[in-house]
């Protein structure tokens, strides 16, 4: 499946935040959305998911305009992984993951054994089956993020849209989540994720959109977009980007911000 954003203008009501944005992501690809606070990442994101009305342009899934799609149909194609948060009620993890089945159930039905099996498979595939009967509000932030990914997988979408999947996570959990992002892309999901860390674009290789102030943006492969000049223009700070040789002979590209 292919998600295309064509010449999109988005914003709140009639107030345009971003305009003329174009990008695309195919099954098995990762698209990272980078940019400073307040530049319109979230706005673009919410428009992509249909939370905000499109002001101009088109959002296409395999060439079809999604504007006329019902919530249910859209949810069958695009899964959303929000930032880990605490809901008001202490649901069990399996109950949370099962909510991913809504899009596939009739108006008055609730999950059956078959749905429970799909939810269990999602937990299994992320290696978090041990969380199944725990209380969602009592597990750690990293675990909650994984459960939300499992819920989105249970939805069986083709594209996964992730809102800062590593925010509020510790160093180790960030990498664990990114590892899963890469694995999911290998399994054929198209992934769109926002992040505050340019390094994530190197660790989850694919295309990058770097939003800069005043409605400018750079779009392309990670190596072309995440450069010292572009980052300086976007964030107003100096950075150094270097390849670090690993003992095995491979190199990993990394971005280091300079304070002085």
């Amino acid at each position: 499946m292919k998600l295309e954003i064509k010449n999109v203008s988005c914003g709140y009501g009639s107030k345009v935040v971003l305009s003329g944005v174009s990008m695309e992501v195919n099954s098995g690809e990762i698209l990272s959305l980078l940019g400073p606070n307040g530049v319109g990442k979230t706005t673009l994101f919410k428009t992509m998911l249909g939370f905000l009305k499109l002001i101009d342009g088109e959002i296409l899934l395999d060439g079809q305009d999604v504007r006329s799609w019902s919530r249910k149909k859209l949810a069958g194609a695009i899964g959303y992984v929000p930032q880990a948060h605490t809901p008001p009620f202490p649901f069990s993890v399996i109950d949370v993951v099962l909510m991913g089945r809504v899009a596939h159930l009739g108006a008055l039905s609730s999950p059956s054994g078959k749905d429970v099996k799909i939810a269990d498979e999602s937990l299994d595939s992320l290696g978090i089956s041990y969380l199944r009967d725990r209380i969602y509000t009592e597990i750690s932030g990293g675990e909650r993020q994984m459960v939300l990914i499992a819920r989105a997988l249970t939805q069986k979408p083709d594209i996964l849209v992730m809102d800062e999947p590593t925010s509020n996570l510790d160093f180790g959990n960030q990498i664990k989540v990114l590892k899963q992002v890469n694995r999911l892309a290998e399994r054929g999901l198209g992934i769109v994720m926002t992040t505050h860390f340019p390094n994530h674009a190197f660790q989850c290789p694919g295309k990058v959109v770097l939003l800069q102030r005043n409605n400018r943006f750079v779009y392309g492969e990670a190596d072309e977009v995440v450069t010292e000049n572009h980052l300086r223009a976007a964030y107003g700070i100096d950075v150094v980007i270097k390849d670090i040789m690993l003992p095995g002979g491979n190199a990993v590209r990394s971005c280091v911000p300079l304070i002085n």
Binding site: L74, A75, G76, Y80, P82, P87, F91, S110, Q155
Partner: peptide, 18 residues
Amino acid sequence: WKLNVLSFGEEEAQALGI
């Protein structure tokens, strides 16, 4: 059963297909 999903907030419920 859908009230469960609603209690996660409007946007999440929409993204899940409600």
